[in-house]
């Protein structure tokens, strides 16, 4: 049980760092990068939550979330290419 708490604390630390970069980021690319990282962290978190709640439904959510996160990164990157 203790290990779960430590895990969530570490994940929260990573998320906080990423969110700081999301607000600070000097260029739009920094922001998209930290969005991408937050998405990947949430995917891992969803699988661990599936284990804790003992519900396989969260695995499907994680899979769809991973697909959508990838699409989001690609779409933003292609959209911002060559602006300015």
């Amino acid at each position: 049980m203790m290990a779960n708490v430590v895990f969530f604390a570490l994940v929260a630390l990573g998320l906080v760092f990423a969110v700081i970069r999301l607000f600070k980021g000097p260029t739009p690319f920094d922001r998209v990068l930290s969005m991408d990282m937050i998405n990947i962290i949430i995917t891992g978190l969803l699988v661990v939550i599936a284990g804790i709640l003992d519900s396989a439904l969260y695995l499907d959510i994680a899979l769809v979330f991973a697909v959508l996160a990838f699409l989001e990164t690609i779409v933003f990157a292609r959209y911002m290419e060559g602006r300015r």
């Binding site: 260029t27 690319f29 998209v32 990068l33 991408d36 990947i40 995917t43 699988v47 396989a56 695995l59 994680a62 899979l63 991973a66 697909v67 996160a69 990838f70 990164t73 690609i74 933003f76 990157a77 292609r78 911002m80 290419e81 060559g82 602006r83 300015r84």
Partner: peptide, 29 residues
Amino acid sequence: KIILIILFIVLTNPVGSSTLIRSAYRSRV
């Protein structure tokens, strides 16, 4: 299913960052 998610992430995460970096370079960041 977990291995499927891992495979998907290992295949797509580097592609996403590469695309982002390429477009950052092309936008002269």
